[in-house]
Design a protein around this nucleic acid. Structure first.
Lengths: 380, 380
DNA sequence: ATGCCGAAGTGAAACGTTTGAGTCAGGACT
DNA sequence: AGTCCTGACTCAAACGTTTCACTTCGGCAT
């Protein structure tokens, strides 16, 4: 369906020669368009008196080239350099059926979570000679489907989905960061949420906190279920009571005009105000993410409580805001860069390895890390 | 890779038996790889009893197709849909010499400035059927050059450089966001720094501030010179004295391990401490960006000053941190999304318009906006 | 009957690579 | 003297489109 997507913006009627005519017509002193025609493999071959095949094989260091004498190879390389030969990636991909391109789908390119992962992913991919195409689906299924389609058309070899759930098994090998659905051909890279809950709760326990308020994530968030399970389990282990009156679920409509980022903050604030009504029933808050933690602090402070003296707050993610907030936010750090790198590594291994590219579902867990700053303190 | 061979190629080409031999020979228990071979234009044509040329022309709504009756066209579209035909982007690009892809170069994919622009850029590009490749050069010239090269190999039709200075005229039409160098074929999208300075200083003046400390940007930053000129000019106009002792230049080595983000914050802090020694000589600080503003606030507050009661602080950029900081940061907002969109629009106009793609240098200015929050107040 | 025209396509050459199957000398071995 | 290598390449067919020049056919005017 997407193939009919040509925009009317096409000045299709503009015949190609319109340009040629115009150039001399318009500005007489204008330089003859240099139109640097790229030098092709064939030209290099001709220049060397060899066949394109030979040159190709040498330049690609194909195993077939083993039988070609060192000296010829050197000549080839020298000529390629001299003529500034650059292989045409399109032609190469077309023939070899390898585009060395992967697709990345994420909710929003401005979300720190997504870009943290993206940075790690990029460092690995580029290092291995791959590029990536990005599209933000803004949590709209319609867009997600459309982009999946477009990426297929673009012949990406694999996909990385960041905080983005698939509804159907993907058409190419994929890695989902923070994914929970198991599909054939996709590997999920997930944080070890049990460990995360343990880190945060143990820290609070050691500070003497027993009465803790919790935030649950949005229904749509891939991490919500896992993390909540981790928290429940860990709380049970340590004999911490989870009270419904102190548990708040973040809500968030996909496709809202307000970005999820802002929503989290606002809801943190809002629940903070609710918490003020029960100020004696808790001494700590374990938020779902840093923004909601910051929001809750904002509200608590406005209500006359001090953080961390009266209430300790633990965030999640360790986005830049956490570090530079006042007080510095104690938080469970997700090693986003590492998660991205891992996603990239796994995907490329699948794409280039001898393993069947479409393997059964797999999961890779990443260990979180507790970053203690100034928003937590011993219970007063 | 070897397994991408597929038994469906039988009708067309010879020597399918090589494949047939191998499949059972290698791994008997292995699942038959389904390997969905994409349906090609030729197949659609055959199915319709038409030639590939006709089908191509119709699907592309080429003007040549005008002479083809409505009914045939409908049949073509129907068949394409039915067979789930997806044009092979590589082949198409190779032939038509249009990749519908642009390259984006930026310092770091985690920098809020860059992603703000990127988001705007993406929304325009994807809407017009373009994709983009991204690479982060981490302010290293070596990487920048390398990536420029790779993008050329990938045949991007144009480039967008975000907060990234070129040393040489680019090989394809380009737009530089926050660029100051003028080259043939590149359009610079820049903030109106005169206006920005005016907005900030007038705001401070109206609050009664006369003694103002200033931060200058890093030498390497594209906006530094422009903005400083704007400030000087505007200060002169309003009779504000710029004192050297109250002027601080952010420094930052490219390629430092510490990200620029962090550097800005640290230097803000550091200069904040220096300012504490002159606490009576100023009542306001105009920082270079939000992070350095937040850093300076952190230091001033630690030193016993209150913001905004004792000192007003104005940031620049309006990154998310500004909004959620405590106090909310008054700042000069750069409409990053709009800048990105503009960059995309201009680039595509150049690529598809009838104007010669390589035109002489041009500049587009974007108007900033003052966002007043809680870090500024009337002078006490 | 001839010529011409428009409608409705078709044929085949690109586009720049990669790749599997050959070729072709010249030496080693039998 | 024939066979068999092996080294050093070359040939030509893909890969899936787009594009320009060309054909074919019926109808209409001359």
């Amino acid at each position: 369906m997407a193939m009919t997507r040509d925009r009317k913006s096409e000045p299709a009627s503009a015949a190609p020669e319109a340009v040629a005519e115009k150039a001399p017509a318009k500005r007489a002193p204008a330089k003859k368009a240099p139109v640097k025609k790229a030098v092709t493999l064939k030209e290099v071959a001709k220049h060397l008196g060899l066949s394109p095949a030979t040159v190709s094989v040498v330049l690609n260091r194909s195993p077939v080239a083993d039988s070609i004498p060192r000296e010829t190879q050197d000549r080839v390389f020298a000529a390629a350099r001299e003529l500034k030969y650059r292989p045409n990636h399109l032609a190469r991909s077309l023939r070899s059926r390898r585009t060395r391109t992967v697709g990345v789908l994420l909710p929003e390119v401005v979300e720190p979570y997504a870009t943290g992962v993206l940075a790690g992913l990029e460092s690995h991919l580029i290092h291995k000679g791959y590029f990536y195409l990005v599209a933000s689906h803004r949590s709209e299924q319609r867009l997600l489907d459309e982009y999946l389609d477009l990426m297929r058309t673009r012949l990406v070899e694999g996909m990385v989905l960041i905080a983005t759930a698939l509804e159907q098994p993907p058409s190419v090998p994929s890695v989902v960061v923070a994914g929970h659905q198991k599909f054939e051909g996709v590997t999920n890279v997930v944080l070890d949420h049990d460990r995360a809950a343990d880190l945060a709760l143990r820290h609070l326990l050691e500070l003497g906190h027993r009465k803790i308020a919790f935030f649950k994530g949005q229904e749509g968030n891939a991490d919500t279920a896992d993390r909540w399970r981790g928290i429940q389990q860990c709380a049970a282990t340590h004999g911490i009571e989870i009270r419904d009156e102190l548990t708040f679920q973040l809500a968030g409509e996909p496709g809202d005009e307000i970005s999820r980022t802002e929503q989290a903050f606002r809801q943190g604030e809002q629940y903070g105000r609710r918490l003020l009504e029960r100020r004696d029933e808790f001494t700590a808050v374990f938020a779902f993410n840093d923004l909601s933690a910051i929001g809750v602090i904002q509200a608590l402070v406005s209500g006359g409580l001090r953080v961390p003296e009266d209430v300790s707050v633990v965030g999640f993610d360790d986005i830049v805001n956490a570090q530079y907030y006042n007080p510095g936010l104690t938080t469970v750090r997700q090693p986003l860069h590492e998660m991205g790198e891992t996603a990239g590594r796994i995907l490329l291994e699948r794409l280039t390895g001898e393993e069947p590219a479409m393997e059964s579902a797999a999961v890779v867990t990443i260990e979180p890390e507790l970053v203690v700053r100034d928003s937590t303190a011993p219970v007063r």
